[in-house]
Simulated assay, not measured.
Amino acid sequence: MSRKRLWLLAGLALLLAACGGGAPPQDLTLSGVSPNSPTVAQGGNVALTLTLASQNGFQGQVSLSVTENGQTPSWLSLSPTSTTLNVPKGGQAQVGLQVQVAGNAPTGAHALKLRVAYAGKAAERDLTLTVSAPSGGGGGGGTAGTTWTVRNLGNYLSGVAYGNGTFVAVGYNGTILTSPDGAAWTARTSGTSHNLSGVAYGNGTFVAVGYNGTILTSPDGAAWTARTSGTTRHLSGVAYGNGTFVAVGYNYTILTSP
């Protein structure tokens, strides 16, 4: 091959490199989140719509995540956590994202960062999520507490609490019932035959108290564990506040945890 031809090929290679030499790299931009400042109750969820844009076009799988102050919040989960996108060149695509908040999520405004990762790169966008305490009426609207419907289950009940999206009712002979809406109830195994007098929810835990110093705990209202109270006196009520459970009972009994 002549020297002149070699110089010609080298020049052509340089020209192709200068012009890009091939297809442009795929890119993604997280151009929008709706709603951008949602509010959700503890134990609830909210649906978001993510809008992704691409200048050069994108086709492939992405992973979805969220952080707060650079850390993954333990009280929040996403669904889905990955999806496949097909964004045309200069176009957009939308992705539905469900955000689930735990029943013990810290209340208040949270400055979050949504992240869409792909091929070693990432598109990010800020999101302000406000977590509120659940309403006592379970979302019954303006008539909650003013109009009532009898739900006769044939059980002697003495206490009820709400938390983590669940109502828990307790009563005689170790009765425990749970319901997602207050209308349809499911009987649960408490592991005790003692009468239960009260129940409370806090810090991600249900606590039920009753006769003979009975104390039971549960993370979800379905599975219960007996705890040692240190007393055989009847316990008649329990409440949660400021990081502490307080139980009261006969003969001036007061118990605290922790």
Rank of each mutant, 00 (worst) to 15 (best):
S2W: 13
L9V: 10
G11I: 08
L12R: 08
A18R: 05
A18T: 13
C19F: 11
G20S: 09
G22M: 01
A23V: 06
P24S: 03
D27S: 15
L28F: 08
S34Q: 15
G43M: 06
G44E: 01
L48Y: 10
T49Y: 05
L50P: 01
T51W: 04
A53H: 14
Q55R: 15
F58M: 02
Q59P: 01
Q59H: 12
S63I: 07
S65C: 06
V66N: 07
E68F: 06
T81E: 15
L85P: 11
L85M: 14
N86K: 14
K89T: 15
G90I: 01
A102G: 13
N104P: 00
A105E: 07
P106L: 09
T107Q: 05
L114G: 11
A117E: 12
Y118W: 13
K121T: 14
A123S: 13
E124I: 08
T128S: 09
S132C: 09
A133L: 15
P134M: 14
S135F: 03
G136K: 05
G142P: 10
G142A: 11
T147I: 11
V150E: 14
R151L: 05
L153V: 07
N155T: 09
Y156A: 07
L157Y: 02
L157C: 10
S158D: 13
S158P: 06
V160L: 13
G165S: 13
T166P: 04
I176T: 10
L177D: 03
S179V: 04
G182I: 03
A184C: 02
H194K: 12
S197I: 00
A200Y: 01
G202W: 03
G202C: 11
G210T: 05
G210P: 05
Y211S: 02
N212W: 01
T217I: 10
S218I: 02
G221T: 05
W224P: 00
R233N: 13
L235M: 05
A239G: 07
G243W: 15
A247H: 03
V248L: 07
T253V: 11
I254F: 13
L255D: 05
P258T: 15
